[in-house]
Amino acid sequence: MLQEGISKGAVAIPAEPMRRQKRIDRRFLIKFTNALIGWMVPLVIVMVWQAAGALGWLNPILLPTPLAIWNELVHLTSTGELIQHLGISSWRALLGFLLGGSLGLAAGIWVGFSYKAERLVDPSLQMLRTLPHLAIAPLFILWFGFGETSKILLIAKGSFFPLYVNTFLGIRSVDNRLFDVARVLQFSRWDLILRLIVPASLPNIFLGIRLSIGVAWLGLVVAELMGSSSGIGYIINDARSFSWTTVVFVGIIVFALVGKLSDSLVKWLEGRLLRWQDSYKGGDKS
């Protein structure tokens, strides 16, 4: 609409492309600066840390320098060891997440739709939700042994709850007034689910997915530290017993990176699917 107004006057036409170019430049600059701001804090910490290590202020067994950790990372990657263990860990996390997450989604939908189901199962599920991983892990090992089953079930147990709670919440917070609209437009039951309830509860479901993925990684570490002969958790545990602190750091960094990566992936998807949302983005966003 703005462009229409500008291009009406013949004189304004040549000036317009230049103005648009300038606007794009500015937007790019803002984006770039925003990205830079996010990196500032960790960058400063790493620099101070490296300097302190190089000056010999730090015990290399307890706190090796960033450079030593980097070299270890390069070394472990080049031997293929890291990739192999990461693959195993990712596979476990994925399987556990898919199992627990889909069950959580299904349970959330069921309980969300039915008041009776809520009365029946929600209190028990809420009780189970608060049980910590570390308390449950010994039991799972007793039941299912040290194999993959106990690990995946532990991860699934963690992933179940965030998706369950948030899906349930999402369905229950659908605007009642939109249900009236759906009735007036004669939506079928299927339309009601697909065109009203699912899109309306999608923001909550996405939040559930992000939290579930986070919990899946958490459960993975617990499972692999408890007893395992492969995976990133095993690398960390193994390195600890030999005091290879650089390897421990590499393991931690890999967990952090993969966790952030999976979260960003879901966030990107969320941004694309929830473009319609009109919510507060922070007062100083330009």
């Binding site: 609209v181 009735r183 007036v184 339309d191 065109r195 899109p199 929830l274 949302q277």
Partner: peptide, 29 residues
């Protein structure tokens, strides 16, 4: 006997589906 499309209803507020564009809101189901 119940709501139906034979009786169009305009509420005091527009009550559009916020996740749908104008054309998709009009098309509905």
């Amino acid at each position: 006997s119940g709501p139906s499309i034979e009786k169009g209803f305009i509420f005091q507020e527009p009550r559009l589906f916020p996740w749908l564009t104008v054309e998709k809101n009009i098309a509905g189901n």
